[in-house]
Amino acid sequence: SYYEILDVPRSASADDIKKAYRRKALQWHPDKNPDNKEFAEKKFKEVAEAYEVLSDKHKREIYDR
């Protein structure tokens, strides 16, 4: 789930989600993982997609249904 990707509970606040996104984006940024760039790019995209949905109140409500 998007919550698992960002490592936050379903009850996470918008601020918690933003902090988790920043932490995970740094962790999986391809430039930070030169030895495993392809895998890092995949993870980085997953993190971005999760944040896009969970950071938008309307999209998150739909996702949580």
Rank of each mutant, 00 (worst) to 15 (best):
H58C: 14
K32A: 15
N33H: 15
H29W: 07
R10W: 11
K59H: 05
A40Y: 08
A25P: 00
A12K: 02
F39E: 13
W28E: 02
R65M: 14
R10E: 08
A20F: 01
P9C: 12
P34D: 07
P9Y: 05
F39Q: 09
W28T: 03
A20V: 02
A50H: 00
S1L: 13
Y21E: 02
A50F: 00
D31Q: 08
K24D: 01
P34F: 09
K19E: 15
D16G: 04
A25L: 15
K42I: 14
R22Y: 15
D7R: 04
I17R: 00
V8Y: 00
E61P: 04
S55F: 07
P9H: 09
R10L: 09
I62A: 14
S13Q: 05
K24W: 07
D15P: 06
K18Q: 10
R65F: 08
E38T: 10
Y2L: 12
P34Y: 08
I5T: 07
P9S: 10
R65W: 08
A40T: 05
E61T: 06
Y21Q: 03
Y51I: 02
A12T: 02
F39A: 15
Y2D: 00
V47R: 01
A14R: 08
K57T: 14
K42M: 11
D56R: 04
R65L: 11
E4P: 01
Y3F: 03
N36Y: 07
S1Q: 08
K18L: 15
Y3N: 01
S55H: 07
R22M: 15
A20H: 03
W28M: 04
P9R: 07
E46F: 05
I5H: 04
K19N: 14
A12S: 06
S1A: 08
L26C: 13
K32E: 10
K24I: 07
Q27T: 06
E52D: 12
Y2E: 01
A12W: 00
D7I: 02
V53P: 00
R65E: 08
S55L: 05
L6H: 00
Y2V: 03
E4C: 14
H58L: 13
R65Y: 08
N33L: 05
A20L: 02
D64G: 02
K57I: 13
L54W: 01
A25N: 06
D35S: 12
P30S: 07
Y2G: 01
P9I: 06
P30Y: 05
Y51S: 01
H29G: 10
F44C: 07
I17L: 07
E61L: 11
Y51G: 03
R22I: 15
D31Y: 05
P34Q: 13
D64Y: 02
Y3D: 00
A12P: 03
E41K: 12
P30I: 06
F39V: 11
L6N: 00
D16I: 07
N33E: 04
K24A: 10
E52K: 08
D7C: 13
A14S: 13
V47M: 07
D31F: 05
K45W: 09
L6S: 00
L6R: 00
Y51T: 01
Y21K: 02
S55K: 09
P34T: 10
Y51P: 01
S55P: 00
A50I: 03
S1G: 13
D15Q: 08
D35E: 13
K43G: 03
R65D: 05
R23Y: 09
F39L: 13
V53D: 01
E52Q: 12
V8E: 01
P34K: 13
L6F: 02
E49C: 08
R60G: 03
E61R: 07
W28S: 03
K24M: 14
I5V: 12
K43F: 07
A14N: 11
L26F: 10
K32S: 15
A14F: 15
Y21V: 03
K59F: 06
E61I: 08
D7N: 10
Y2N: 02
K45N: 10
Q27H: 09
K24T: 04
Y3K: 00
K43V: 08
D31M: 09
E4K: 11
A48Q: 15
V47D: 01
E61N: 07
K37R: 15
K45V: 07
N36E: 07
L26N: 11
Y63D: 02
V8S: 02
I62W: 09
A48C: 15
I62Y: 08
R10T: 11
D7V: 03
A40R: 05
L54F: 01
A25F: 15
D56F: 03
Y51N: 03
K57G: 09
S1T: 12
P30R: 05
K43D: 02
D15Y: 08
V53Q: 04
K43T: 06
S13R: 05
E52P: 01
K42H: 10
D7K: 04
I62K: 09
A50M: 01
D16R: 07
L6M: 05
E4F: 09
D31N: 09
F39P: 03
A50D: 01
K42F: 12
D7S: 11
F44T: 06
K32F: 14
K37Y: 12
E49L: 11
D56Y: 03
P34M: 13
Y2F: 11
D64L: 03
H29Y: 06
R23T: 13
K42D: 06
R22P: 02
A12E: 01
K43Q: 07
K32C: 14
I62M: 13
V47S: 04
Y3G: 00
I62Q: 12
E4R: 09
I17Q: 00
D64S: 03
V8G: 01
P9N: 07
R10M: 12
N33D: 05
K45S: 10
A48N: 14
K19H: 12
H29M: 07
K59N: 06
S55D: 05
D35M: 11
D16T: 09
Y2S: 02
K57M: 11
S13W: 02
F44P: 01
D15S: 13
V53F: 05
K42W: 10
A12F: 02
K45P: 01
I17W: 00
E46T: 05
N33Q: 06
A20Y: 02
E46N: 04
D15M: 13
Q27N: 04
K32N: 15
A48K: 15
K18S: 11
I17K: 02
V8N: 00
E61V: 06
E41M: 14
Y63N: 02
H29P: 02
V8A: 04
I17M: 04
K32I: 09
R22S: 11
D15V: 08
N36T: 08
Y63I: 03
A50T: 01
I5W: 11
V47P: 00
D31G: 08
R60Q: 03
K19A: 15
K19I: 12
Y63K: 03
D16E: 14
E38N: 09
K37W: 09
K19M: 13
K42Y: 12
Y63M: 02
A14L: 15
P30W: 04
A20S: 05
P30V: 06
V47H: 01
E61Y: 11
R10H: 11
S13G: 07
Q27V: 07
R65G: 10
I5N: 03
S11L: 09
F44N: 04
